[in-house]
């Protein structure tokens, strides 16, 4: 009797151990994801190559059919899991008869045909789009070119007028300074004189005598004009950021 009880207890323990082992094994089996890995791999194989036209021309690597490129294909665009298994090159884990296999092969061929047609359509559409893009770009370039030309002309006209205005106002300010700095006295009244002197005003406003273009014939009068320029020496910079040449004509007021 003790032997039987022991045997029962032993059987219970073994049963328990067997169950534990079973459940552990089952748990281990259910925790593995090998099948999903296979699924992903399968989809990858049958997925059509991305249409060339859609790939950016500036990225030559996109034309590459290598693995690295392929991995970029998002899983959402893959075939549904059911179809995925059909498209798999891996041996199916289930039993398949010949009839259904032929059906599947026909379906696969049709799918490939449709896929090819779709690819061709997309390629054509991409080509048409590229042509449209080129034409559009050409039209835009033409418009831009015309606009640029017209704008340049208009802008050039305004610039000339503004330049003249700015130069004239600048000249008036220079005139006022020279006028204030010009001091001369004249022993011989009512003398008709004119002294013309060309000066250069550098972009930083330094005024220097270039040449006495037209002496008056009165040495003292000429000297007074030169002194007025020398006394001025520094003025505001010319309006266009470049050196400016001025002709200063000095006249006695009669």
């Amino acid at each position: 009797m003790t032997g039987q009880i022991m045997s029962f207890e032993k059987a219970t323990g073994l049963s328990f151990a067997a169950h534990v082992v079973f459940f552990v094994f089952a748990a281990l089996l259910t925790s593995t994801n090998h099948a999903r890995d296979v699924d992903i791999y399968t989809v990858r194989i049958v997925s059509p190559a991305p249409p060339a036209p859609t790939a950016p021309a500036t990225e030559p690597a996109s034309r590459d059919t290598g693995p690295a490129n392929r991995q970029r294909v998002p899983p959402a665009k893959k075939a549904p899991p059911k179809d995925s298994q059909l498209l798999s090159d891996e041996p199916a884990p289930v039993r398949v008869d010949k009839k259904s296999l032929a059906l599947k092969r026909a379906t696969l061929a049709e799918a490939r045909h449709q896929q090819e047609l779709r690819r061709l359509r997309e390629a054509q559409e991409a080509k048409d789009q590229a042509i449209r893009d080129i034409e559009q770009k050409s039209r835009l370039d033409s418009i831009r070119q015309r606009a640029a030309t017209t704008g340049a002309e208009e802008a050039g006209g305004r610039s000339e007028a503004e330049r003249n205005k700015a130069l004239s106002e600048y000249g008036e300010r220079i005139q006022a300074i020279i006028y204030d700095n010009w001091a001369y006295t004249q022993a011989e009244e009512n003398k008709d004189l004119k002294t013309s002197i060309s000066v250069q005003v550098s972009r930083d406003g330094v005024m220097t005598v270039r040449k006495v273009e037209e002496p008056s014939g009165d040495r003292v009068f000429d000297r007074s004009a030169l002194k007025a320029i020398r006394k001025t020496s520094k003025v505001e910079p010319p309006p266009f950021g470049k050196d400016e040449e001025l002709i200063l004509n000095f006249y006695p007021e009669r």
């Binding site: 130069l167 001369y184 004509n249 006249y251």
Partner: peptide, 11 residues
């Protein structure tokens, strides 16, 4: 460049 006339009475 600009041609500027400066007319002034002697003083």
């Amino acid at each position: 460049g600009l041609s500027i006339d400066i007319v002034k009475a002697p003083r």
